[in-house]
Design a protein around this nucleic acid. Sequence first.
RNA 1: UGCCCGAUGGUGUAACGGUAGCACAGCAGAUUCUGGAUCUGUUUGUCUAGGUUCAAAUCCUAGUCGGGCAACCA
Length: 468
Amino acid sequence: MSDSPNDSTASPKPMHFIREMISEDVKAGKNGGKVVTRFPPEPNGYLHIGHAKAICLDFGMAQEFGGICHLRMDDTNPAKESVEYVENIKKDVRWLGWDWGEHFFYSSHYFERMYEVARDLIRKSNAYVCELTQEEWKEYRGAPTRPGKESPYRNRSVEENLDLFARMRAGEFPDGTLCLRAKIDMASPNIHLRDPVLYRIMRERHYLTGDDWCIYPMYDFAHPLEDAFEGITHSLCTLEFEVHRPLYDWVVDHLEGLTTRPRQIEFARLNLTYTVMSKRKLLELVQKKLVNGWDDPRMPTISGLRRRGVPPEAIRAFCEEIGITKYESLTDVALLEYCIRQALNKTAQRRMAVLQPLPVTIENAGDLPTSVEATNNPEDPSAGARQIPFGAKLFIERDDFMEVPPPKYFRLSPGKTVRIRYAGFLTCTGVEKNDDGTVSGITCRWDPAGSADQGQRHHSLGARRLHA
RNA sequence: UGCCCGAUGGUGUAACGGUAGCACAGCAGAUUCUGGAUCUGUUUGUCUAGGUUCAAAUCCUAGUCGGGCAACCA
């Protein structure tokens, strides 16, 4: 991270509930006063503006409280993941201005350790191998309004469970047959506590572990373990995981020898008007070639925004501006655009272009300079200046001339004088027309120092046509 | 129908029992050199009903509305 942690003299940031919770934990000396967060994307797509909110929160909180933030690839489902995604996620996080230092991890690197934790759960009769088919399970699971019933395989002996689990790993059973379940409470009003699946059989080549495994841990089992293994103190995630928290805590509670106690805190994800934010739909746009890849400038991805010319500080400012709450909201894209303009105004070099050219012929061409000096950025003197060509044949925007001007029209019309940027004044002296009566060009007299009529002035010029 | 979460102007948020503030958007002006910029001004709000209190956006109760949860996805 580029800056030292904020102290109390730094610009005060609004006190959202997460900042408050962490602050209290630190004050109370929880986890030795340390703050360790993590950003844990699944490498199954590119990061988008919604992820930026999470990234800025995860890394931002760590920075503010003098802690660290891990970057972790949550790659427990090999069916959808790839190195391409891993590399681009790293690139995007770095581009946004965050630094994970040495703390880059893969969930898949913990597979062996997770397997041992699972065996431990079995030994303590907290997990069992279940042979119910997925169809049968639907029946056993019950419904939100109706309790479930216990699996007939729920009370096998520890030995039998250990043996079956080992054979699952060894590849003795077909995909989707047996699974390992936590033994919790089939009558719980929270469905996630009704003996959730911990491991499933899936023969799928993992982009890192290859064919080493044919069983993979489920998110609800893997995530708390990853957090615990890495010493995460504050595990920030989005609202839809709120009902998973009791299960997260259950897993953490069944771990031994923990020095830090990870805590899951949920916040509302970002929704933007007129913006598709679901990874699934973005993937579809890419696969159906409706866009030119993940970094198409029309995409709301970080890489798309980057290609569009959006500076990272604009995205960070935006994430700071939207705040953190616990209720779903729909943010107006206008706020993003405002943040982008704000950032660009300070850094972007200015150029002029004429979109709908109207030829201008200058009568007193003998006095003309061949070029004029233009400021590169009025808000940043260090950006310097540039010479732009000038001459007797110019173009102005068609909209900037009207033969018969309406009231309060402050641009060019016959007899009026207007300032042209960086290059003196033009007074319209004549109009040239096509056979059909449309204006084909105008003639003007040029004056380097005159004054414009009323407050009027205008506009850009192009001594030659440029094709952008 | 069960459980969990939430509700402040058009939008995003602040106010932590004591004057409802800020930003975006909108509107109206200003501006002889960014007219999609800048500056000034301005409209609009505590979901409802009870209760506690000298005092409620804030605490309590009920209701209403919205979101989430029944993947061997994350």
